[in-house]
Design a protein around this nucleic acid. Structure first.
Lengths: 240, 240
DNA sequence: ACCTGAACACCGTTCAAGT
DNA sequence: ACCTGAACACCGTTCAAGT
């Protein structure tokens, strides 16, 4: 009864895509949009093709397989990410250090799609060709510690620690949160009170599970402790 | 021509499983074995059924769906894990703290299947009913910091930081390593030397990518810095 | 009650064919 | 050259049927 079904020979909005209308870029853009909207888990080749209005196999002319597509997506996302991420400033080392890594987490919080993509393709992102913006940020981050008084080799080791801590924490936060939202929450189910004889300390706490929660407070305290640890271990004063 | 195909009416090794031969326990055991052998990614319902010598749908009599099975698997693994994980000792707080969290990482290194399972079902594991062994270890871990001089509420916050750091670090290490082993390594591809004018510090390094590597050294240094940070922030002396 | 095969709606991917 | 449909080997899961 619809217009398009009345006569199969009718124009029917031209199902077939024009000759060179598809491109590497358009496919990636669509994939990114879909990831932002519904998450990486929903990004399938058929769904992507539907979204592009092309046949599934057309995508394979531009990407060897799905993995290659995800790799390209990860690179694109990392490039965007570092464009929005400032290099280290030249204020007090401890203040700047906290700001430097907090900025990374904040940006990831802003754009959940980034977290998934970055988390997924860890390798291609961590190991493969870094963009100039990433090298720059890396260089200034190490410089921060070097200026504060650490020998270069120690500055690299300490930067490494802070960097991996931040990446790991954000990734872990994300997986925990994602998993939590997929389940019937046990919020209502009243927990059994803990036996004070068995667990003297936990039993005294208002919420024992707080000890293993993961949230922003923990991230902040971690950075504070790391900073204090750097100060103490390398004998450079804190300013804050 | 084979014996079994000659006569379809022959005994044929009795394809059908005996009446009550299947069980919750046997299924979980098989799933764990398969995960140890080939990784969680290879654990499909058909593969599991083949392994058990039963029909795929038989499994569904014991587990509502695959997610429920993975949940049960995660709980089983966490229970095993904490059985092998000692509570905190009563030596010097800083030495014990490092040993306490290093033990977790070491155990995860030992049994890669554990990492995958624990990593996967973050929620059910982190939030849902903890076993007595886990509560015990938690209680002694917090006690470690409390005995060292931290008020109980701070001891919980600091424990939380160390715990989440360790979990996150191990999980992140695992995903990076797993992803790396799935790809053509770029080891051979000689990296372009970095421009000394653009990246003065990185250019001076023998291997700039070391700044973002992840390995055991980073883990150890992280724990050292955290310990030093706790000492400095809460004014309790280091003994090591 | 417990176990099962057939069937469904999805994947990613190969292959041979359209234009 | 670029785009496409049909087909294949896999998933997880529902349903109705065997024993």
């Amino acid at each position: 009864m619809t217009m398009s079904s009345k006569n199969p020979k009718a124009p029917e909005v031209s199902r077939r895509r024009a000759r060179n209308s598809l491109s590497h870029e358009e496919i990636l853009e669509a994939a990114l949009k879909m990831t932002e909207a519904d998450g990486l888990a929903q990004l399938s080749m058929p769904a992507l093709a539907r979204n592009l209005g092309c046949a599934v196999m057309s995508i394979y002319k531009y990407f060897r397989n799905k993995d290659a597509l995800l790799d390209a997506l990860a690179h694109r996302v990392m490039r965007d990410l570092h464009r929005r991420l400032p290099p280290a400033g030249d204020g007090d080392w401890d203040v700047e250090l906290v700001a430097y890594f907090t900025a990374y987490r904040d940006l990831m919080e802003d754009t959940p799609a980034y977290r998934e993509v970055v988390l997924y393709a860890s390798t291609s992102v961590v190991r493969a060709a870094l963009t100039p913006a990433q090298w720059r940020r890396l260089d200034t981050g190490i410089g921060l510690l070097h200026r504060a008084g650490l020998p270069l080799s120690d500055a690299v080791r300490v930067y490494n620690v802070c960097y991996n801590f931040t990446r790991a924490y954000v990734a872990y936060e994300h997986t925990v949160r994602a998993a939590a939202s997929n389940r019937p929450d046990t919020e209502g189910a009243a927990e059994d009170p803990l036996d004070g004889a068995e667990y003297p300390l936990l039993a005294a706490l208002p919420d024992p599970t707080a000890a293993i929660d993961i949230n922003e407070d923990g991230f902040r305290l971690s950075l504070e402790l790391l900073t204090a640890g750097i100060s103490r271990t390398f004998g450079i004063p804190l300013t804050a």
